[in-house]
Design a protein around this nucleic acid. Structure first.
Lengths: 364, 364
DNA sequence: CGTAGAATTGACACCGGTGACATTAGTTTG
DNA sequence: CAAACTAATGTCACCGGTGTCAATTCTACG
């Protein structure tokens, strides 16, 4: 290999200077300009842009330099039109927690920044009856390169079906594997729930309640299942009246928090399956004149900002949202591999962050 | 006007049926297909799509129906390529508060949804030395239709200059008018600061401190200025030692909160110029064993989620973020008017929300 | 009724790239 | 040295629209 270029040497630097000269009016260079300056066809420049292996090394280097020098940027619209794709990645979400959404976005962008792709955000309402239709149009019309789905839309099988049908790459972020490995980022909420239970059990708590999220959410189910597993390890029962049904909102946490106060025998600890509800429970305690963790230890889930803003600061299982976004974007770009397995890490594990809302049982 | 179409009547409905017949393979229709079915040129269909007035009413109606029936959607890439524009709106932000960012996004999307435009998010770091260059590339390469700038990037004059130079429509969200009216959404933070002061003064407080934000932020300056105005109305002095310099972060609020405790004579109230810092002050009180508003009334600013999550819930001046996003997007689409004035409302005013973190001075 | 002016429509090149396929040049093989 | 490859590059139509300007059809009017 390593044949030298077949044409007489081109002075690319000189070509770049020539361009600078002849372009006083500041026109943006196109592929045609590059081709002419480099004395090759547009197609060869196109190959360089797309890292095609079918280009002589010397030619490639020269053209790359030229592109740098004159500041040529391929037009994504033209590229997309011709190749029936786009350089856009969509994020479809219906999660009401800004903290989560923004951090996932940031994680995705950490990766996209290096690729020249852009992120188009698309919140949605899964309950709308045009939801699937709207999403389909969005994906089809924009010819999205890929889509990242956050909970709970990520759990929607109809949407996944549409994505497959359209041949669009996609990654589903969820708490369990709902799809082929390469299409999932699994957050292992079950482990987080287990850690929460273990933490409280180790602190000597026996009467522990749970404020659960909506049953239809996988994460809610997983967090609870993990929690029960953790309790079981310590031989702790979870009586039915200790299971409070919330919906991940602060308000539901607040309401259930008051109910906890009426429980008899009263629990000494609660696991709220997200921070919002934990904050709600906490506030209910304050309103009732209690000061956790005196009478009640509280563990949350997610470690979003709220966890450190409230007092006492919440012990909570951290969901590494930004990292999740990053992984999702990374996997998205390896999606075209033919196998079903992921091309890299596709799991994250919550870690328990101990703060001030939990303490040893009995101490007061 | 109202001349009838010159060609013999076309049965558009029949044409649509014919399409459905001949398209068993589910190909997406293009403008060419529509044109052939309607027996007009592509250009006429193009005119219909773009609401050109140069189309006979009957023809327009027929083609519109046909487009509906066969589900034709113009390709934004092709449109953009030919007309040297795009159907993308950018949001450039460097605000660290997820609550704010997401709500602005939602507001923008409320408007975009009806237009077929999509939102591309672009967080940035104003301190990076390639910031301007990066932003320019983003805007130029994507040929953004318009850009919405949130504080504090919205205050960056270099960026505004780039936008103007590129002929890109843009809206700056900021607390004072920094630009032509049609390019601004003004949030009137000064009024919010004034309301905060009035509220505390009316409650009988005389010794009131302020936790200010970074001096270089306009909002911070405005909030403080308004606050001082409000105090002045009631003849209240703001001694220098009552001005604590923070930076809008929770941590700075926390740190300054402890310092407030050491002040002598100690203030009976504080105005923290955003909720994050207010929450920090509040937490510092808790850590010191105090329970606001007993010894210290606290007023925040923004009314983001944090305000209602902490205990006591914060009295605060509400920044209607989603509405701000909505207004910004609306104004963006009226941008092409030749005048310098805004085509609709371009101001919002914070409203004081009274909660539990403030009370009458002296009561304890 | 011929003609000017307004209303409508069309022809065609072009936006800036890429796909499919052809071509050319250098290398290896028999 | 011809044949058969391989490597490198080019040709040209086309992606799906829009801009420019010309052409056609009406309507109004002298």
């Amino acid at each position: 290999m390593g044949r030298t270029s077949r044409k007489s040497q081109i002075d690319y630097a000189a070509a770049a200077r020539r361009w600078a000269e002849g372009n006083k009016d500041g026109r943006k260079p196109t592929i045609k300009d590059v081709a002419e300056l480099a004395q090759v066809s547009k197609k060869t420049v196109s190959r360089v842009i797309n890292n095609s292996p079918l280009v002589n090394e010397a030619t490639r280097k020269g053209i790359q330099g030229l592109i740098q020098d004159i500041g040529y940027r391929p037009d994504p619209q033209a590229r997309g039109l011709a190749s029936r794709r786009s350089y856009l990645v969509g994020m479809i979400s219906d999660n009401p927690t800004p903290q989560y959404v923004v951090n996932i976005q940031l994680g995705i962008l950490d990766v996209l920044r290096q690729t020249g792709y852009e992120l188009v955000v698309h919140p949605c309402d899964r309950k709308s009856d045009t939801f699937i239709e709207d999403a389909r149009r969005f994906i089809e019309v924009q010819k999205l390169y890929g889509v990242i789905l956050t909970p709970s839309v990520s759990e929607d099988e109809r949407l996944a079906e549409v994505l497959r049908e359209l041949g669009c790459a996609y990654i589903r972020i969820a708490s369990i594997a709902l799809d082929m490995e390469k299409r999932m980022i699994v957050t292992n909420d079950r482990i987080g729930g287990r850690e929460a239970a273990r933490h409280l059990a180790k602190l000597g708590h026996k009467r522990i309640a749970i404020v659960a999220g909506r049953r239809s959410f996988r994460s809610s189910h997983e967090r609870r299942a993990g929690f029960e597993e953790g309790l079981a390890e310590f031989g702790i029962e979870l009586p039915e009246e200790y299971v409070l049904q919330g919906d991940y909102t602060f308000e539901s946490g607040f309401k259930l928090g008051s109910e906890i106060l009426d429980l008899d025998p009263s629990p000494t600890a609660v696991f709220a399956s997200n921070d919002e509800m934990a904050a709600g429970v906490l506030q209910a305690m304050h309103v009732a004149g209690q000061t956790p963790p005196d009478a009640l230890s509280i563990v949350g889930f997610d470690d979003f900002e709220t966890a450190t803003r409230v007092w006492p600061r919440l012990t909570t299982a951290r969901t590494p949202a930004r990292k999740i976004g990053r992984l999702a974007a990374e996997r998205l770009f390896e999606f075209d591999n033919d196998s079903e397995t992921a091309g890299g890490p596709n799991q994250t594990t919550p870690r328990l962050i101990e703060r001030d809302s939990t303490r040893r049982s009995g101490k007061s």
